[in-house]
């Protein structure tokens, strides 16, 4: 009997959505379990790092890694998995380009930490506890001091391919079950495109599969931009033509236009098409090109309508972009402290 392909699955800075998308395969999961052996999957099964270390190098057929790289721990784990795996797949937007948590790269790590642990209105942290490399804790009950060592956060969040070589990408926030299924089929059949390709999705933009494409006028020029909460879009009519900033034209298709079918504009979670240099730059170029004004004050009036352009244009892509944010320009002071409390 030929051995079943071994599959690994690891999560880094993940929200859990990608794992959910795996579960969303529903009855098709049974086929997957029949076809492969899962050798590592901390989200669902009890594996330890040492289980992976024990495996011979290159013995895992394919490892899916989701979530962005934010901690030293992630770096350590993905490097290990790279060594053990024939194929590594960046699964989901965070792993491919940084995803929504990647927007934290607009800030220094210290700004992120102090916001998260000291400033947000919902925080209750009178002792100013913050995860640091070394934390000394006095345990009063036993009158003992212990030293906790936590993995450090990196100065910026990184997409997987900035840390290890990635063979293929599966896009989406999260990837849809169909896209995942397409990719799995390709993997199991061994029908793989050149290294570095995107699996399971189209190389055409979302408009190609958008049910509203036919309602789109050939020519669109906008005098105004609307945000989804401002209007109830007319159903069955191209959202861009209604002034909603839909990123469908600049985003890879393959999701089945799920958001559009729910009357929401595309936010770009399937990322750019092949050969695009920078998703946000391209998105900017496309949308600005069709703003129908000819001088700066008028243009600015329209641009003012969107309070957070980076968040719109780079929602899933910032860490993979050509410039990124200001994260990584300064060293963290906060987490290099040695904190004592208790």
């Amino acid at each position: 009997m030929s051995e079943k392909p071994k599959v690994g699955w690891y999560w880094c800075a993940s929200c859990g959505g990608c794992e959910e998308s795996f579960v969303d395969l529903a009855e098709r999961l049974l086929t997957v379990f029949d076809a492969v052996d899962i050798v590592f999957c901390p989200v669902a099964m009890d594996f330890k790092k040492e289980d992976v270390e024990k495996l011979p190098d290159g013995s895992i057929t394919v490892t899916f890694i989701n979530g962005g790289i934010r901690l030293e721990e992630h770096v350590e784990m993905v490097k290990l998995l790279r060594r053990k795996s024939k194929i590594v797949i960046a699964y989901g937007a965070c792993s491919a380009w940084g995803g929504i948590p990647g927007l934290a790269n607009l800030y220094d790590l210290d700004e992120v930490l102090s916001r998260k642990y000291f400033e947000v209105p919902s925080i209750d942290n009178p002792d100013k506890v913050v995860p640091c490399k070394i934390t000394k804790v006095k345990l009063k009950e036993v009158d003992e001091e212990i030293e906790l060592e936590l993995p450090k956060a990196l100065p910026a969040l990184l997409p997987l391919d900035k840390v290890i070589e990635v063979d293929y990408y599966i896009p989406g926030c999260p990837p849809t079950p169909d896209v995942f299924w397409n990719a799995l089929e390709a993997l199991l059949k061994g029908e793989l495109p050149p290294k570095g390709s995107v699996l399971g999705a189209l190389n055409k933009s979302l408009c190609d599969e958008c049910p509203l494409n036919e309602t789109k006028p050939d020519k669109i020029l906008l005098k105004d931009l609307k945000r989804p909460h401002e209007v109830i879009p007319e159903e069955g009519k191209c959202l861009l033509a209604q002034g909603l900033l839909c990123l469908g034209p600049v985003t890879r298709g393959g999701c089945g236009a799920l958001c559009i079918k729910a009357n929401m504009p595309c936010t770009g979670c399937f990322g750019p098409l092949d050969n695009i240099i920078d998703y946000g730059g391209k998105a900017l170029s496309y949308i600005a090109s069709i703003i129908d004004f000819e001088d700066e004050p008028d243009l600015n009036k329209v641009y003012d309508k969107i309070p957070d352009w980076v968040g719109i244009l780079y929602r899933y892509y910032l860490p993979a972009s050509k410039i990124g944010g200001k994260a990584g320009l300064k060293k963290s002071k906060i987490q290099d402290r040695v904190v004592e409390y208790g």
């Binding site: 607009l106 946000g280 900017l284 170029s285 949308i287 600005a288 090109s289 703003i291 004004f293 000819e294 001088d295 700066e296 243009l299 600015n300 641009y303 352009w309 980076v310 244009l313 972009s321 410039i323 990124g324 944010g325 200001k326 994260a327 320009l329």
Partner: peptide, 18 residues
């Protein structure tokens, strides 16, 4: 004019991008 449209918006981005 197309350049003006694009780079008026582009200038807004640069600073946030660091």
């Amino acid at each position: 004019i197309k350049a003006l449209r694009r780079y008026t918006l582009f200038k807004r981005l640069l600073k946030s991008l660091g």
